Amino acid sequence: MSRPYEGYVDPDFPNPGGPNSARIIIYGYTPALALGVLGVVLFFVALVAHCYLLFRHRTWYFSTVAVGTVMEIIGYVFRLLSSQQNPYSVPWFVAQYFCIVVAPVSFSAAIYTVVSVLVNTYGRQYSPMPPKAILGIFITCDVVATIVQVAGAALVGTAYSNQDDPSTPNNILLAGLAFQVFSFFVFLVILAWTLWKARQSSVSVARSFLVALVIATLAVYLRTCFRLAETAEGLMQTLSTHEVFFGCLEFAPIVVAVYLFTWWHPGPWLSATPNSGSKRHEGAATAS
Rank of each mutant, 00 (worst) to 15 (best):
F245R: 02
L228I: 04
W263C: 07
R223N: 09
C225R: 00
E250Y: 11
E243L: 08
G234N: 07
P266C: 04
E250Q: 14
Y259D: 05
G247R: 05
V258Q: 02
F251C: 00
A232V: 06
T238W: 04
P253N: 10
L260I: 00
F246Q: 08
A252V: 15
A257T: 00
G267Y: 09
V258P: 01
F246P: 06
H242C: 03
T224D: 12
C248K: 04
R223S: 14
A232R: 06
L260M: 04
A229I: 07
L239R: 11
Y259S: 00
W264T: 02
T241R: 10
A229G: 10
H265G: 02
G234I: 07
F246E: 08
F261V: 00
L228A: 07
P266H: 08
L228F: 14
E230H: 05
E230G: 05
A229M: 12
H265Q: 11
A229V: 07
A252K: 07
E233K: 03
W263D: 04
L235W: 07
L222Q: 14
F226W: 11
L235E: 13
F246G: 04
T241S: 15
A229H: 02
Y221S: 10
T224E: 14
L222F: 15
A257M: 13
V256D: 05
F251D: 01
G234W: 08
G247D: 11
V244M: 12
S240A: 13
C248N: 09
V256N: 00
E233D: 11
L249I: 12
S240G: 15
Y221M: 11
A229L: 14
E230W: 06
Y259M: 09
C225I: 15
R227P: 04
A232C: 03
I254D: 08
E243Q: 15
L260H: 01
V220D: 07
C225A: 10
L249H: 05
M236P: 01
E233I: 07
P253R: 07
T224A: 15
A252F: 15
T241K: 02
Y221T: 11
W263Y: 14
T224H: 08
H242F: 02
S240P: 04
C248P: 03
F261D: 00
G267T: 08
F245K: 04
F245H: 13
P253T: 03
L228M: 14
F251I: 00
R227C: 04
F261E: 03
W264M: 11
G234L: 04
W263E: 08
